[in-house]
Nucleic acid binder design. Sequence first.
DNA 1: AATGAATGAGAGTTCATTCAT
DNA 2: GATGAATGAACTCTCATTCAT
Lengths: 194, 194, 194, 194
Amino acid sequence: MSARQKRPKASRDRDLRILEASTHLFASQGFERTNMSQVARESGVAVGTIYLRYPNKGSLLAGVVQQLESQLADSLTRAAGQEIPWIDRFPLVFGSMMETVSTTPEMGAIMQLAAHAEFKGHSPGSIIRSAIEQIVTRAQSDGAFRPDVLPSVVAAIAYGMVEGAMGHMMQTGTWPQVYVIALADAASRWLLAT
Amino acid sequence: MSARQKRPKASRDRDLRILEASTHLFASQGFERTNMSQVARESGVAVGTIYLRYPNKGSLLAGVVQQLESQLADSLTRAAGQEIPWIDRFPLVFGSMMETVSTTPEMGAIMQLAAHAEFKGHSPGSIIRSAIEQIVTRAQSDGAFRPDVLPSVVAAIAYGMVEGAMGHMMQTGTWPQVYVIALADAASRWLLAT
Amino acid sequence: MSARQKRPKASRDRDLRILEASTHLFASQGFERTNMSQVARESGVAVGTIYLRYPNKGSLLAGVVQQLESQLADSLTRAAGQEIPWIDRFPLVFGSMMETVSTTPEMGAIMQLAAHAEFKGHSPGSIIRSAIEQIVTRAQSDGAFRPDVLPSVVAAIAYGMVEGAMGHMMQTGTWPQVYVIALADAASRWLLAT
Amino acid sequence: MSARQKRPKASRDRDLRILEASTHLFASQGFERTNMSQVARESGVAVGTIYLRYPNKGSLLAGVVQQLESQLADSLTRAAGQEIPWIDRFPLVFGSMMETVSTTPEMGAIMQLAAHAEFKGHSPGSIIRSAIEQIVTRAQSDGAFRPDVLPSVVAAIAYGMVEGAMGHMMQTGTWPQVYVIALADAASRWLLAT
DNA sequence: AATGAATGAGAGTTCATTCAT
DNA sequence: GATGAATGAACTCTCATTCAT
């Protein structure tokens, strides 16, 4: 048992360290200014080891982006799943996102870099947009949201709203709550069935 | 007089050709994959000539971004200045933006690259956000918009909405009008004074 | 006895598989483009196992070259040993060489790579040249060949003739028999005692 | 005049220095062990400058090979053009080749490396073979050579003879004259019309 | 004896920038 | 002002070799 697990564990540790270091470096320096030697140094592995997991620099970024997007999509879906009136759910949903972003400062920066990555089948932001789309669809079938809006278009615009708020927040340092209120306000008036 | 003007004219032509070529190349290939020789070749000038106007590659991108943002901000401000009820102005405002973007295909791509540029005093998107902010402020003082929303926050979120729509449109190829309707709908319900 | 032989047999199998795979890969891709992982994969052994037999990549190539040269030298010596008039022996000798080369397509390619190998005591081609030299010496002492030619020089030049023919044949795809006739013709006139 | 020639001259000097250094390095170390930094250092130019003339390492070797082959083909053609009986021309022809090779020690080594190069339309050795082929054809039409041998096949085999002699000479250090005599002897008996 | 994950030095190539013309 | 040949630091990626298991 210990023999069977020792290698995989060390291996997973390495993987995590590589991903962490990449996230940090890509976020703080951007894609091009980050080089593989830096990632190796910060991960505590050799350059070649990174190439054992990721065939090239672009796919390393893809890994980072996917991980962060999944994380954000999860917190989003969780917040949207609570059984309380939607008018009260909105602040929680947007709050969870803004909070995830403020507590994971890399997230905002990484989202911007997505264009570089080699995404195998999904483009940047698509994981999150798809999560939003599902939430909207369900809310419509529950009769909570207006039926005359297209979930995919709502998802695209709502994702943009959050990104816009995120960007401004990170630039100005404004208190997140301000955006949560504004976002929840906008979304309620826009989407709730009357 | 003619002597004084002849050169400046040729000079301005050169400037424009450099900016056009850069816009095209940055948009289609991204920042890093575009090199100064390409820009020189497409502009019909020598590499050194570009360096007479722009101290480095980053500031060339900054010039491109600034030009495009100003263009977008102009069309936005013009559309928002028409003296018709706001409920009818919204489709025009968003329509003008979406149209500018669809007819200037470089615009969407360039916006994404902004992170690389050396901006002297204003960060990417700020020209547009600032235009929106002015429009909102004026609409509030006219009594047309709810007074209880912060113009700067509205500007950030609204800018995001358009970006989100733009991105989705460019990815899926959906007809712009779909987004214009959705954006105008969302904005009216969110912002108009009741 | 069976216990003592079982392992050696498996071991010899492994050796052969490594040599076969190397021959194939070196011949088709060249020395530098062939890497040890490929050899390991095609041999069905681990990388480390190859290093148990061959201290480094160069000596692996040396092994391959030596094996092929010995094979060619054998067929040469066998053909030259037949008890028929030399005038009839020449076509057989050159025919056997050209045939060995055409039926072992790796041979030609491998000969070219020899420069890279770490040869312990004999340089590329020397096995074959030495076989030719012996044949010439014997033919001279039998009174069949002119006595006024230096066997070592004849060997060098004759080896080159075959190589030249081989190279041309592989490049142009000409029928081997054409070269066999030419080679036998040249050699008879050059070497036979009158 | 001086203004028009100054740059090209400096440029041609550079080209020559690059070619010289490459020839020397490829010959003494082989293709893979020679790296572009070494070539740059020995040429007295920057690495990038080499890439201004040759798009990659392979084409640099191609340039070297072509230059040397042309040189050898020239000396060959010149020697074969003298108006003396063929029986006396052979020693001169082979002598010129062996001499070119002994005085240009890189030549032998470079010939072996040819496989790596990117040849635009002609494969290694083909320049020389083609020169030999022309000589044979003319000698046949002059009635000096036997008409029943194929010039292209003779060229391939004769080229091999010289290569074999060259290789042996360089390995054993034997006096070139020994090979010249043997080669001329072999060629006369093989090719001359009786 | 056999394995194969890990290593890291070293390679070829690019390209922003300079400056003599 | 305009040019573009020259520069060389810096990058990503490869792969022979090792050694703990």
